[in-house]
Design a protein around this nucleic acid. Structure first.
Length: 602
DNA sequence: ATAATAACTTAGAACCCGTAAT
DNA sequence: ATTACGGGTTCTAAGTTATTAT
């Protein structure tokens, strides 16, 4: 379908083209642009080749580490699946892949045709063409699935001591891989475990879901390490690394080609708590703070261009407006062997609906195929411009057909050094947090202050469209909460009746077991009622928050978008222990932000 | 100028495990 | 003691952007 993405209406029916030409012929339609302007008065872009903090592109001077650890070899279980009702013999290699599929029985994937087809195609390659297994419909993986359930149960039944012992054993094995020494400082490695083989789990309608992700061998892996440092010993006897590099302009310790997409790599990096990552994190936030000094100029600039005669300029202006106002992602082109998702530059006509007189409705699948659905009021000129971009284009056609992320970012760089589309998201998120915290924090209890923080956090998550799927048990949890509340209300009402009687000096009647209730003074009953009222209020509040947040993911913005210095400074000013907001990993990740001045403003 | 590649950040789901509720 | 819940951790997919090749 890639053919379509740029040009014709979402041509699902278009014939797949030759593999070589996958994504880029897409661009043809939008070419005309003739961007003579792009590079003109760029006051900044020519200078500043190198990012400020990094010393000429050099990322480290010495680097030592122990390479990566591989998953254990496959251990056959010997449980026979059925084909056409009969048990079949499988080699360990064949059984391994069958098991990968079998254990996914209770996931959504197991029901998806693409997943099944891709799995079966790859599995049959391993079965060989003369194998008795020919049709997926005749396969019965249940015996293997049940074996898997038994194994899971066994694991669950282990005592916590056994589990602990197992964990410590693993830790001991992995200990040496967990650490690197960078410029003489011991740092944690992020992902030192090589990804185990499995069936590819793409998000959304991913055309490759279910494909076999083959086992990675040492000969797939390139190691990057300091010149003086010992090359890590290959952990699998008799095998060896693909290549050893000594490149101090990059931060990766190792990589291999992604077996699902040969052109992609899987990298091993340092952990988020490392100073290398911390430094670049800090630079990210410093850059987005700089945007404050330019934002007025940028807004004036694009507002002016809303009425430009030059359609390219108008498209850039409107796209920048959307990125600024709605924190949309840039939106790169995608290959046709990926899920069809879009960002700002790749929005299609049918993702964006004009609702007179001045509202725009957005409805599209963004990163991870998460739906973005939002209706916003826009200025008249924006509305008119978007109407204009629709004109004469069929559904499936690009809204911004004269734009792509490169052109957009080139334009942004002219407005501020180093400015790119994603900076707006960071800026938007962080300044929103800073604003809300300053406006809404009052002298109150610790709990109230934390609630303010969470509200702000939620606001940001909604702006950034950070979603999570509702937990399977959400509904039953809500029902239970409601029952509890009803129960409390009943108790309260009964107490009210009691109170009335008590005030008149009448006996209180019987409790639910039929025994007469002990008489209590009215004041005591009133107290009880008040206590229950408070409890009800609290539960109603909990319920509301739970319902409110059932699809909102707060973590993503905390980890990636909110300048931690805003949070740390706020905690200092309001005597909130930082541990109430940041967990252990965030504290480690944001070590660089801890000594911030309490008066820090984003 | 455009396309391909490389390197890095951002993302939600799955899993795991301690603790609160029963 | 047992289960349920939810926070934290791990996993790896899916983005963005800078650089390099054509």
């Amino acid at each position: 379908m890639g053919e379509s993405s740029k040009g014709k209406p979402s041509a699902k029916n278009v014939v797949k083209k030759s593999p070589a030409s996958t994504k880029k012929n897409i661009k043809k339609m939008k070419r005309k642009v003739k961007t003579k302007k792009t590079m003109k008065n760029s006051q900044f872009s020519k200078t500043m080749k190198v990012p400020p903090g990094s010393g000429g592109g050099q990322k480290w001077t010495t680097l030592e580490h122990n390479g990566v650890i591989f998953p254990p070899p496959y251990k056959p279980h010997g449980v026979k699946m059925l084909y056409n009702g009969q048990p079949v013999d499988l080699t360990p290699e064949q059984e391994e892949v069958a098991t990968m599929f079998a254990v996914m029985k209770d996931t959504e994937y197991a029901t998806m045709q693409t997943f099944i087809d891709n799995f079966f195609t790859d599995w049959r390659k391993i079965l060989g063409k003369n194998h008795i297994i020919k049709k997926f419909e005749l396969c019965d993986f249940t015996p293997i699935y049940e074996w898997h359930l038994r194994e899971k149960e066994k694991k669950k039944q282990m005592t916590s001591e056994e589990k602990k012992a197992l964990r410590e054993e693993k830790l001991k094995q992995e200990d040496k891989y967990m650490w690197a020494v960078v410029n003489g400082v011991k740092e944690k490695v992020g992902n030192f475990r090589v990804e185990p083989p499995g069936l590819f789990r793409g998000r959304g309608k991913h055309p490759k879901m279910g494909k076999l992700k083959r086992r990675i061998k040492p000969s797939d892996i390139t190691i990057n390490i300091g010149r003086g440092a010992p090359v890590p010993e290959c952990p699998i006897p008799g095998e060896s690394w693909k290549e050893i590099k000594h490149d101090n302009t990059v931060t990766w310790l190792a990589f291999w080609n992604d077996p699902i997409s040969q052109k992609d790599f899987k990298y091993v990096f340092l952990a988020a708590s490392s100073s290398l990552k911390g430094q670049s994190d800090k630079e990210k936030y410093e850059k987005s703070r700089k945007l404050k000094d330019h934002i007025q100029n940028i807004r004036d600039n694009y507002t002016k261009d809303f009425r430009s005669k030059d359609e390219t300029k108008r498209q850039i202006a409107v796209a920048t407006y959307l990125i600024d106002k709605l924190a949309l992602r840039a939106g790169n082109e995608k290959d046709d062997d990926e899920a069809e998702t879009v960002g700002c530059c790749t929005l299609k006509i049918d993702n964006v609906t004009c609702l007179p007189p001045n509202k725009i409705q957005f409805d599209f699948l963004g990163k991870d195929s998460i739906r973005y659905f939002n209706t916003v009021e826009v200025e008249e000129l924006v509305y008119k411009a978007i109407e204009g971009f629709h004109r004469g284009k069929p559904p499936g056609y690009d809204l911004f057909d004269k734009l792509d992320t490169t052109r957009l970012n080139a334009h942004l760089k002219d407005l501020m050094p180093g400015l790119t589309a994603k900076v707006f998201r960071t800026y938007n998120a962080s300044i929103t947090l800073d604003d809300i915290l300053h406006k809404e924090t009052e002298d109150g209890t610790l709990l109230e202050k934390i609630a303010v923080y969470q509200r702000a956090n939620k606001e940001v998550a909604i702006i950034c469209n950070h979603q999570r799927s509702v937990s399977k048990s959400h509904e039953s949890q809500m029902t239970r909460l409601n029952e509890k509340i009803d129960d409390l209300k009943a108790q309260r009402d009964e107490l009210k009746v009691d109170l009335g009687k008590a005030k008149k000096g009448k006996p209180l009647g019987n409790d639910k077991d039929g025994k007469p209730k002990k008489n209590s003074p009215p004041e005591q009953i009133e107290k009880k009622i008040a206590a229950i009222e408070t409890k009800i209020e609290k539960m109603e509040m909990d319920k509301k928050i739970k319902e409110d947040l059932k699809t909102v993911a707060l973590g993503t913005s905390k980890i990636n978008y909110l300048d931690p210095r805003i949070t740390v400074a706020w905690c200092k000013r309001h005597e909130v222990p930082i541990e109430k907001i940041f967990n252990k990993s965030l504290l480690a990740k944001f070590g660089w932000a801890m000594d911030v001045d309490p008066e820090f403003r984003f």
